[in-house]
Write a protein that binds this DNA or RNA. Structure first.
Lengths: 225, 225
DNA sequence: CTCATAAAGTCATCAGATGACTTTATGAGT
DNA sequence: ACTCATAAAGTCATCTGATGACTTTATGAG
């Protein structure tokens, strides 16, 4: 597909072996070639082969038995996609989170109740505007509002995936860059609630897109610079 | 949880480092001691340290930057949301997948190239219509088309999450009910490609929604009955 | 004070060697 | 012919040392 990400030898070895496993070249229970053979086949050192094998063991694909060999334990790993998603770029993760924001807002608009709207307005009021002080707490209040919008959609799958991206994005931001990312103001937030309150999915959709556009644009500028 | 077999230095190193991470001895973004130091601290060789670190990287806890060091990326268990999302209802999972379909189609419409469109049309032709025979192979071809639409968006996070839901949905369907879910026909698929080809995100969005509506409606009837 | 360059620090990878454990081959004893 | 202890071979586990690639920091000329 696209291989623009600089890849190291061990990761290539992991993918090479994994593809042979999921491609059913070896069945469950089969014994892999020994480390020396794999080393020669993949044109990497034995140490690199061992790193690759150990990762695949930790992911449940393989099992090693000292003195005996390495065996296929499973040909699939359900946790892989999320692990990979977590390694995607900040831009991509944010874009995915936006997708959930938009679609959840549509659902919420269709399924809203007066109580839902009241709770959202209350959370938004609690959030307030940032005026110095404990930034972590403010971010948590902000996130609580967004989570509530998703939660109001009633879709548990979206709720969990959204939480996944929120945490992953927070990690990435904390680890890589300062927060030069614009924080939409009170009015932008209130617009979302109002749009949901109309009960029209298209209005909710549009409100969230307007909300997110400047943030995504800022991320693009960061990448280009 | 962990077996009592202590027969493995690398696993002990993994647990030692992981416990220091989740125990907040190092915060997110912190730099770990270099490989030589870890090697001395844990009383294992550098190669063993590297195996341990690589496993933790694959699990999302750490991140290594050649020439710079090894950094804490997350202190939380990344697999929890996954487990919860898998437990969501089939309806919710499908709805989440639709959200990705819609948003990815928008992105693809904006970023498409002639090659992209050509590949999509080729895949759709390969898919053909189901006319009896190997149903598994047909489903795989159908999925390949949908995956290609997502892949063309260029968003790696969405690609992986989509794969996650696809697999999870397939599991759920196989485990619980037969396939009384309607399969959109050739024309519905072709409409999506055409809409993407216009380059207009709104048209792509609408095409996917038209595509998905009957499927979601069928799921709703199932739940109500 | 700026900025190109050198130096130091760190991960990536390789090669070779030894030890531990498992499996298989061997052969004496019955 | 069979049994079974033992040797031999095969394989993973681990260590040591070295080289290359990349990043960060220190240096010094202008």
């Amino acid at each position: 597909m696209q291989a623009l990400s600089k890849t190291n030898l061990a990761d290539e070895a992991i993918e090479a072996i994994r593809s042979d496993i999921v491609g059913k070249r070896w069945a469950v229970g089969d014994k892999l070639p020994n480390e020396a053979s794999l080393s020669a086949t993949l044109s990497v050192s034995r140490g690199t082969v061992r790193e690759a094998v150990r990762v695949l063991v930790s992911q449940g694909y393989l099992e090693t038995r000292q003195g005996s060999g390495t065996y296929v334990r499973s040909t699939s790993d359900a946790s892989r996609p999320l692990t990979m998603a977590r390694r995607a770029s900040l831009r991509d993760q944010f874009e995915a989170r936006c997708a959930l924001d938009v679609e959840a807002a549509r659902l919420t608009a269709m399924r809203k109740t007066p109580e839902t709207i009241a709770e959202l307005r209350w959370l938004l009021n609690e959030r307030g505007s940032y005026a110095g002080g404990d930034e972590t707490a403010f971010i948590e209040r902000d996130l609580a509002f967004h989570r509530a919008v998703i939660a109001a959609s009633g879709n548990r799958a979206m709720i969990e995936i959204y939480a996944f991206f929120s945490a992953s994005i927070a990690d990435t931001i904390a680890a890589t860059l300062g927060k030069d990312i614009p924080e939409p103001d009170m009015q932008a937030h209130a617009d979302i609630v109002d749009a949901i309150d109309t009960g029209d999915p298209d209005q909710a959709d549009a409100a969230v897109r307007r909300f997110m556009a400047p943030v995504l644009a800022a991320l693009d500028r960061m990448i280009l610079s």
